[in-house]
Design a binder for these strands. Sequence first.
DNA 1: TACCAGGGCCTTT
DNA 2: AAAGGCCATGGT
Length: 270
Amino acid sequence: MKQSVKQILVRDFELDTVLGCGQCFRWEKDGPLWRGVAQGRHVSVSQECNILSFYDTTPQEAEGFWSDYFDLQTDYSAMKRLFSEHPVMAQACNFAPGIHILRQEPWETLCTFILSQNNNIPRIKGLVQRLCEQFGDVNESGPLAFPVPEKLARLSPEELTPVRAGFRAAYLIDAARKVVSGEVDLAAIAAMETNEARQALMKIKGVGPKVADCTLLFGFHRLDSFPQDVWIKRAVAALFPEGLPPEMLPLAGVAQQYIFHYARCHPELF
DNA sequence: TACCAGGGCCTTT
DNA sequence: AAAGGCCATGGT
């Protein structure tokens, strides 16, 4: 194995959990190495104990762009302390102590979660990969950037058939057209209060509360947005019949990730 | 409110 | 090898 270009000491971070828990779809594990693309940059990363090793990038990119992407500067132990005042949440936090919320690009996050609906992770990855291969730009370092909205806005549903997204193709095109026209303004959404931002995203066909909240949490780092799917609804009903404790609400999205991962890995409990 | 909309991965036989 | 279930959902 070649020498890493940068090693970073991490806490409360577990690469396998972060990249495998269903918040991102452009990472592949190859032996100990995870290879991925974000915003047209590619990188390889591995982790041994608390050391994160970066390859195929520069020390500057690792310290800057990728540290931000992996949200390494946020103190998750403080959040876990708050959540752990609830005994069941303590168990969930303890079960997967290395969860982080990635800081992904909003447009890509919106598209990938449109594609995620009524779908499973392996197939979502395939759809995203074909979308990038067919319509993404290649830069000089090789990786395929996620297709820009202008590109997708020009397409007809027929032209998207090679992606094999099914009924989701029309949703993707609607999203692209509304972003290009400014009817959905992602920069403005970044500045909106969460409920207003959710409503704005839901102007897109195929974007309901769940997809909107995933976009806000994973693409805009809105830690108060709380994506509710069948698993979370079941788990919350069992664990918090009165609803989430109010002190957790500003960080409900982070709490959601611990609960979701715990529920998925203990299906017999819910 | 219930049902339907691609398609393929994964488990079971 | 073949079959069927299942899918972090939303529109009609």
